[in-house]
């Protein structure tokens, strides 16, 4: 197993390098550079040129690339030209919100997906199962942004159950319990919106897993030994079907990242996704590029995590 994990780990290194090269190329193609955000336009061009030379902006691209990567490894993502502060600090502020939103989403995803998948698989082809299958069918075809808009419209504006924008109620003292409760409260509706759409693939997968497992020999054996229906489902089928679901966890990160961009925009929730949209519209490219790099790395790590969990859970994969 360790051999597999080490091999899988090694693959991520070229993946991250290629990702960084692509982001670097994107950054080079974007107008402006590290200086354009800092200087006053009235400064003498010769002095600007001197600064460029000093910062290494006139070096060949490969040296610039190495410098850039070196900076990132030390946590230096450059300066935000819009906020006049280090990108690292800026992203750090927003990351708290996005991480909170993601955690809320994941909790709801599993809270919804597990019971629905279990019921649907256990009582397959009943009316209840058909209702759940119908939900996954429609959910699969529904774009997240449209669904979230309706959620905001209904539960945010018309019913007024949830806040309609922001990540915390204004005027709450940071660090207090009320502050964190308000934060969670603000993340609830966006989180539930993503979760309701995101669960459909997990529900479908869990359902077919359970229907498959139901007919396996060891289940028949368990029944023959006289195990009760409840015991067969909870101890034998559920445990076996749950393992692949656990491995989905890493891949959920990809859908989660894409989802947060739309949802943060709709709920005006100040997270990393909204920061990306704002930065790219206002041409604050150093921030936008750093975010692409971070999101890409998170996605690579998610895939890595899933593969490792799968290899622990399912020995057949290790041999391949």
């Amino acid at each position: 197993m360790w051999k597999f994990i080490v091999r899988r780990l090694l693959i991520t290194i070229p993946q991250i390098i290629i990702l960084s090269i692509i982001v670097f190329i994107l950054a080079q193609m974007m107008p402006g550079d590290a200086l354009s955000g800092l200087i006053d336009p009235s400064i003498d061009p010769a002095a600007v040129e001197q600064q460029r030379e000093r910062l290494g902006l006139n070096n060949p691209w490969y040296i610039q690339y190495v410098d850039w990567v070196g900076g990132i490894l030390q946590g230096d993502f450059g300066q935000s030209f819009r906020f006049k502060m280090p990108v690292t600090e800026l992203i750090g502020q927003r990351m708290v919100n996005t991480v909170l939103l993601s955690v809320v989403t994941l909790i709801f995803t599993y809270l919804i997906a597990l019971p629905l998948g279990l019921i649907s698989g256990r009582f397959n082809d009943t009316l209840l199962d058909q209702a759940i299958t119908g939900y996954t069918y429609i959910g699969f075809a529904t774009p997240l942004f449209i669904f979230s808009l309706f959620m905001l419209w209904i539960f945010g504006y018309n019913l007024g159950w949830f806040p309609t924008s922001g990540s915390v109620a204004p005027g709450t003292e940071p660090g207090t319990i009320a502050y964190w409760l308000s934060k969670v409260y603000h993340a609830l509706l966006p989180g539930i919106s993503i979760a309701l759409i995101q669960v459909v693939s997990t529900v479908q997968y869990l359902r077919s897993e359970i229907i498959d497992t139901k007919q396996k020999d060891f289940i028949i054996t368990a029944r023959a030994k006289g195990a009760g229906e409840q015991r067969v489902y909870n101890k034998h089928i559920f445990r076996n079907s749950l393992l692949p679901i656990a491995a989905f966890f890493g891949w959920e990160i990809t859908t989660l990242i894409t989802g947060t961009v739309f949802v943060e925009k709709i709920f005006s929730y100040p997270g990393m996704g909204l920061l990306f949209l704002e930065s790219i519209t206002q041409r604050d490219f150093s921030v936008a590029n750093s975010l692409v790099l971070l999101f890409g790395t998170a996605q690579i790590m998610g895939a890595l995590l899933s593969d490792i969990i799968l290899s622990i859970v399912d020995p057949r994969i290790r041999i391949k």
Binding site: L19, M30, F276, L277, A288, F295, G296, Q299
Partner: peptide, 18 residues
């Protein structure tokens, strides 16, 4: 595989801008 791991939404948006 490499194409697949790219955060495509962000890269599409970046391209649209540049």
């Amino acid at each position: 595989d490499f194409m697949n791991i790219l955060p495509f939404l962000f890269i599409i948006i970046s391209f649209v801008v540049i």
